[in-house]
């Protein structure tokens, strides 16, 4: 009964991973004999300013998207908790709907929202007297513009997880604090936030790992431009792979990210969840 799943995971997950490590030491391409090049691919990646610039960009992108998601999800959870059950259901359903929308459709919609002459955003800022901005056409705003669809797509799941965590805190803690005269912000700082530390940590890491790997939005919306200002790490790797004859560079770069990100999430998952996950 285990066989089908293990065979599929073996062929399409483990084998590609092993194979990636193998290929990363070769000057491999679809068309020629490959030759062993040792660590050259990794050296090429680590010496490439474009790679490091994309990492920096990914970090800047994440520094906006991840706290944005965390703060909004926390606010959402606290709001829903105070609402009646019918209203709470409506709110939960609404905030989750963007999660089921594809990156392609989100991109189509947001590109039109950012449109220079007739877009919604420029219309809104013109109401308060600002000049039209080429949001996706300018290297200084394009990355910022991509954060909105990223948050829009990612907020729903984080919010519902945050809400589940908030509702797990026994109501009696809040009641006794309230009886002792604790204000809302005191209850939040001294009860809610400490007790939700694990959920927060979990969301922080999973959102970060997902966000820094984002490449579908810039692939469709900007192709990494203008002047590479939205060339996030995985987009750089993906475009290199599709444009290069030799694949060693891309695979070595992907593996470097894998070591860092996979390690990070495995460690955090272990810290929070270790024995329970393994032993059920």
């Amino acid at each position: 009964m285990l066989a089908p799943a293990l065979v599929l995971l073996g062929i399409f997950v483990l084998w590609p991973l092993v194979y990636a490590w193998y290929v990363s030491f070769f000057n491999w391409s679809f068309y020629t004999e490959s030759t062993f090049v040792g660590l050259r691919n990794f050296r090429l990646v680590l010496a490439d300013p474009v790679f490091w610039a994309s990492i920096g960009r990914g970090l800047r992108f994440s520094v906006i998207v991840v706290p944005g998601i965390m703060i909004l999800a926390f606010a959402f959870a606290n709001l829903v908790k105070t609402m009646g059950s019918r209203m709470a259901t409506w709110l939960k359903v609404s905030i989750y709907i963007p999660t089921v929308i594809s990156g392609v459709i989100a991109s189509i919609v947001f590109v039109l929202i950012y449109e220079y002459r007739q877009g919604l955003l420029n219309w809104l800022i013109s109401l308060v007297g600002f000049e039209n901005q080429p949001w996706l056409g300018s290297a200084s705003t394009a990355l910022l513009a991509l954060t909105a669809p990223a948050i829009w797509l990612g907020l729903g799941l984080a919010s519902l997880i945050m809400l589940a965590g908030l509702l797990d805190i026994p109501e009696s803690y809040f009641e006794s604090a309230e009886l002792d005269g604790a204000k809302w912000w005191q209850r939040t700082v001294f009860i809610t936030i400490p007790l939700m530390r694990n959920i927060g940590l979990y969301l922080l890491v999973t959102s970060f790992v997902a966000t820094i790997q984002q490449y579908e939005l810039p692939l469709i919306m900007t192709q990494g431009g203008p002047t590479q200002s939205t060339l996030l790490p995985n987009l750089h790797i993906f475009l290199r792979f599709t444009n290069d004859v030799t694949v060693g560079y891309s695979i070595a770069a992907a593996l470097l990210l894998f070591v860092v990100l996979g390690g990070l999430s495995a460690v955090i998952f272990r810290v929070i969840n270790s024995e329970k996950a393994v032993d059920g």
């Binding site: 679809f30 490449y215 992907a254 996950a277």
Partner: peptide
């Protein structure tokens, strides 16, 4: 099996394509 959850997509996307 659990470990495969932590493999970022890009690390195996390219070689999966080759496979």
């Amino acid at each position: 099996v659990l470990m495969t959850m932590f493999i970022p997509g890009m690390a195996i996307l390219l070689t999966s394509y080759i496979v």
